[in-house]
């Protein structure tokens, strides 16, 4: 049985003449504990799929199931205890006036936990930040530290699926390595299922076992990482993408 399944997903913005189809007829399955990648160029609709799954974009049709349960248009609170998301830009995803403690504390409170203090401590340790960062504000943190806080926030609910929207593209390469390692460790420790969006094939290849290639709102090909490494792609667009990025 799959942990997350998306069938014939369509997502659009606007109405009538202004309607733009951001995702057209996308279908894929992610097994429990698997790590699945979505790659494509900007505007191909890969991030929009994540936003539709989480309910941040309300205009979608098709079927989304999480752990065998159909996801309704209006998300129930329990949905967010299963599915969480990490955003692309850590400089934009933390409230500028809330300290790390406030961000994590509020999240834990919303999920109905009682032992908030102990959990904040544990979350900070989990993401490798430690206690000295607890009362800092976002402007006192580096990009990598902010992204760790964002990951801690996503983990606070103890979710089973983590949606990662280009989690390292705003970071330096050395920091990217640290965050990717952290994600690897967390997946092993907590048995998480990942869906990762990225434009960087090497990053997706490092994290994911299977990936979908998107172009112009459609999934053109789903392949496994071995084919990616061997540069065996069927669709001409995937081949072009591989050529362009492996050139280095």
């Amino acid at each position: 049985m799959s942990m997350l399944s998306v069938e014939h997903l369509n997502v659009w913005f606007g109405k009538g003449h202004n309607r733009v189809d951001a995702v057209t007829d996308a279908s894929f399955d992610v097994a429990p504990g698997e790590s699945f990648g979505l790659v494509g160029e900007s505007g191909s609709g890969k991030s929009t799929i994540l936003r539709a799954i989480t309910g941040l974009v309300p205009t979608w049709s098709g079927r989304i199931t999480v752990d065998g349960q159909d996801v309704a248009k209006k998300r129930h609170r329990s949905f967010y205890k299963t599915v969480q998301m990490v955003f692309q830009d850590p400089y934009a995803s933390l409230h500028p006036r809330h300290s790390v403690d406030a961000v994590l504390g509020e999240t834990l409170h919303l999920h109905g936990f009682r032992d908030i203090d102990a959990r904040v401590v544990r979350l900070l340790d989990d993401v490798g930040l430690g206690q000295k960062f607890r009362f800092r504000f976002p402007h006192q943190l580096s990009g990598g530290q902010r992204q760790r806080v964002a990951i801690a926030r996503a983990l606070a609910a103890e979710p089973r699926i983590l949606l990662l929207d280009e989690p390292t593209s705003a970071l330096d390469v050395s920091v990217q390595a640290e965050i990717l390692n952290l994600l690897t460790d967390l997946r092993a420790e907590h048995g998480l299922t990942y869906v990762m969006v990225s434009h960087d094939l090497a990053v997706v290849g490092h994290v994911c076992a299977r990936l979908a290639v998107m172009k112009d709102s459609r999934i053109v090909e789903i392949m496994d990482v071995d084919s990616l490494r061997a540069k065996r792609a069927n669709h001409p667009y995937s081949q072009e993408l591989l050529r362009n990025s492996v050139g280095a």
């Binding site: 050395s174 390692n181 990616l228």
Partner: peptide, 20 residues
């Protein structure tokens, strides 16, 4: 060297990336 090594590579899969 550290920067170069911290890049994930398609041709050399690794379990963990080396950290600078």
């Amino acid at each position: 060297r550290g920067l170069l090594n911290s890049l994930p590579r398609l041709d050399e899969p690794r379990e963990r990336l080396s950290v600078l």
